[in-house]
Design a protein around this nucleic acid. Structure first.
Length: 600
DNA sequence: ATAGGGTTAG
């Protein structure tokens, strides 16, 4: 039985009180639908011009990644004050648009509004994310002129920003830190964190020992220093010595063991953690995924959702990246399903991670469908899709996408050209590839880097133009590297260019002295030419050098288990059967016209 | 101020 209830309209007074309650923490909201509702209510109550309300609304839109709405709103305010300008600057910083943040800063000054103690730290944040050292210097000069250093928050921000601007910056930060009359724990922590970013672990440790008092952040910072340096023994020692450990401390060591490949230790600590948020779950799941341990990764992902935790953008991006790296389509699809369940619209970077994951797992259809459904695309979106098509040999489609990119007004960047050149070389479009290479600098103003030369060398080499490829290696304006010589060696193998191969390997061993792959490739080339003396010579050289570094490997996922294999790998128990199968496949390929080169 | 975060030639 249904009881019908009379709908009561709340009185004007209570409606007003309801709105006031919402306004208390509006600036922390990140649900676009709710923010839009409050926006409408604010308009109705005629509160938009209220300078204690408008900044909160702008901050909320910015938290929802709606920078256009935030800017729009700002332009409607008749008499903006410092607080409002600060909010807009912060919104641009959050949207990683430092130039817009600075434009707002200058506009504010020309409108006669003076910056305060909050303005500078926000501007400094804009610089540190983009390593804008000269900008930090400029702000520093400003601050000294206006004497804002009285608030310790300001010099602390300066130290933080300086130390995120590379080695120059760390020097400036050091200098400032030395002359600071008063230092709090944040000043010390920022300085230590800056030194660690510059790779100065020793100096950072020294400062840590000198600190008059240390809080958990100080311990976590130096702990992470050891983790990043790969010194897990020292890190763990420190972890055990810490007076207080929080989620960050635990996450730091778990992440260290994941990176060191010790998943047992990582898992043990993860299970021991008293409190977990989404970050440690992300770390351990990505750790398993990177190692190709599908079963563990999937079961933990399920457990995480059972525990009522929803992956945030950071978790999704991180796990999808790990899936892309190891080709874990299964887990990638699971993550995609979770996203679809909770939201309709993804942030661009989340969709980018999806496109990349599907493309690297060879599901170009799905990559395309995510790509096509995106509301906004950035350079990374186009590049991930281009790269996916190029990688899997869809040269024609990659070139089509490249034209579409141009038609839609997206300027290709240097990464796009790597994908395009790679697409041409995999599809055998030698002439077209060279044309794109020429256009790149002439029409797009992008100066080719060593990666681009690498693609063109591959293009020429695969096409059988070995002499031209070799000449390009010698005439290109930069130093050659191991990848370039490796590309050339691959081309030599493909076309049985025995003499050139020997020369190339000589260059290669100087750069990668202990890589097995180079030698086994050379040995294959000699074998294909029937030059057995040279083959045993190479084997001798291999033994003399003593091979330590493992060569590159491939992997395949079968029944949720990933199998990894390398050149001349005999470690698998059924290795004989596997090679038998490869021989059979080569026989079959020969029947349909494929001519195998060096492989025997 | 500290933990997880996308595209880059063999």
């Amino acid at each position: 039985m249904q009881i019908s209830m009379p709908i009561r309209t709340p009185s004007l007074v209570s409606r007003r009180r309801l709105l006031e309650e919402k306004l208390i923490d509006l600036h922390k909201w990140n649900n676009l639908k709710q923010v839009k509702q409050v926006h409408a209510q604010i308009l109705k109550a005629n509160l938009l011009q209220d300078l204690s309300v408008a900044p909160k609304l702008i901050a909320a839109f910015s938290l929802c990644h709606e920078i256009v709405l935030a800017v729009n709103l700002f332009s409607q305010i008749q008499q903006p004050n410092v607080h409002l300008y600060n909010t807009l600057i912060r919104a641009h910083v959050r949207n990683s648009q430092p130039s817009q943040a600075f434009a707002t800063f200058f506009e504010m000054q020309s409108n006669g509004v003076y910056p305060d103690n909050f303005t500078y730290p926000f501007l400094l944040k804009a610089c540190s994310g983009h390593s804008l050292y000269p900008m930090v210097q400029m702000i520093h000069t400003h601050i000294e002129k206006f004497g804002f250093c009285s608030d310790i928050f300001v010099p602390n921000s300066l130290i933080d920003s300086y130390s995120k601007c590379g080695s120059f910056g760390v020097n400036a930060a050091r200098k400032l830190f030395m002359v600071m009359g008063e230092r709090d724990v944040v000043s010390w922590n920022s300085m230590i964190s800056g030194l660690l970013k510059a790779g100065e672990l020793g100096e950072a440790r020294h400062l840590f020992d000198e600190m008059p008092e240390r809080d958990t952040v100080s311990w976590n910072t130096i702990l992470d220093g050891y983790v990043k340096a790969g010194e897990m023994n020292k890190a763990f020692e420190l972890f055990e010595k810490m007076p207080d450990r929080n989620v960050v401390s635990w996450s730091t060591v778990v992440s260290g063991y994941c990176k060191a490949g010790d998943m047992d230790m990582a898992r043990m600590l993860f299970d021991k953690m008293p409190i977990k948020n989404i970050v440690p779950w992300t770390i351990i799941i990505s750790g398993y995924a990177e190692k190709g341990m599908t079963k563990e990764a999937i079961s933990l992902y399920d457990k995480m959702e059972e525990a009522g935790l929803r992956p945030d953008d950071g978790a999704v991006i991180s796990i999808l990246a790990a899936c892309a790296e190891s080709g874990l389509l299964g887990l990638g699809e699971k993550v995609h399903a979770s996203i679809k369940r909770t939201k309709f619209k993804c942030r661009t970077s989340v969709s980018n991670a999806l496109v990349d994951m599907y493309a690297k797992c060879a599901r170009l259809d799905k990559a395309y469908s995510v790509f096509d459904g995106m509301a906004r695309r950035d350079a990374v979106s186009w590049n991930a899709m281009l790269q996916g098509l190029a990688m899997h040999g869809h040269g024609e489609k990659a070139l089509q996408l490249f034209s579409r990119m141009n038609e839609e007004g997206f300027a290709p960047d240097k990464v796009s050209f790597i994908s395009i050149l790679c697409a041409c070389s995999h599809a055998g479009f030698v002439e077209e590839g060279l044309q794109y290479f020429y256009t790149m600098e002439r029409d797009y103003g992008i100066i080719p880097e060593v990666e681009h030369y690498g693609c063109v060398i591959d293009l020429l080499g695969r096409g059988g133009h070995l002499k031209e490829a070799f000449r390009l290696v010698q005439s290109m304006p930069m130093e050659s590297n191991a990848i370039i010589w490796g590309t050339l060696l691959g081309a030599c193998r493909m076309h049985n260019a025995v003499d050139l191969a020997g020369e190339v390997v000589d260059h290669l061993v100087k750069l990668e002295p202990s890589d097995v792959g180079n030698f086994s490739m050379l040995s294959n080339i000699y074998a294909a030419a029937g030059d057995w003396d040279s083959v045993s010579n190479v084997r001798l050289r291999m033994r003399r050098i003593g091979i330590q570094k493992p060569s590159g490997s491939s992997s395949i996922e079968v029944d949720e288990e990933v199998h990894e294999f390398t050149v001349l790998d005999k470690s698998h128990p059924k290795s004989d059967k596997i090679y038998e199968m490869i021989d059979r496949l080569v026989q079959d390929l020969k029947q349909v016209g494929y001519v195998p080169k060096a492989y025997q």
